[in-house]
Amino acid sequence: MNIFRLAGDMTHLISVLVLLLKIYATKSCSGISLKTQELYAMVFLARYLDLFSDFISLYNTVMKLVFIGSSLAIVWCMRYHRVVRRSYDRELDTFRYWILVGACFTLALVLHEKFSFQEVFWAFSIYLEAVAILPQLVLLQRSGNVDNLTGQYVFFLGAYRAFYILNWIYRYLTEPRFTRWISCVSGLVQTALYADFFYYYFISWKNNAKLQLPA
């Protein structure tokens, strides 16, 4: 564990807590893409298949349970909670994400570290996470103004993988046999997808204005 990875995990945890806060405090999920939440639930379920088979550390196990639990809870909330579900922007959240799921799974069948069930699903989760934010970014552009908590949620979600890139650089420099090309390349693509959001987020923060994404 290094400071970059810890910062990344904490930032990721904060993004989840901000989203939970928004939904429970405002009893609303307006501006949140259910499709991105469902993609993230798939990412965690596919990535943490080793949850019960490989014990790495208490921290690792606890965080995996937190991420799986929170993503499923948010999907459940947005689909079935009788108050929250009413504020879901159903007509704006129309990204056909099964194309992304199919493409990522196909890529994982071709490009993986080892051809085993667990490794293919792990590579699938890495590729899927890189594009999981797309429905959310499309929804933000369509819904115009973005409320603060939603903007902060997306910001922390994007920042966490940037910390992971620093972690991979650090591990590459300090650990002799460390190579994680699948994670690194996907992590770079994932962070790059946030580039324009980070730009408009910075502008809104600098001008102390509402976050506006151009349509």
């Binding site: 990535r47 080793d50 570290e113 972690n167």
Partner: peptide, 10 residues
């Protein structure tokens, strides 16, 4: 201990 190729990251 797990080799470093293990998935020790989240």
């Amino acid at each position: 201990a797990k080799t470093d190729s293990a998935k020790d990251e989240l």
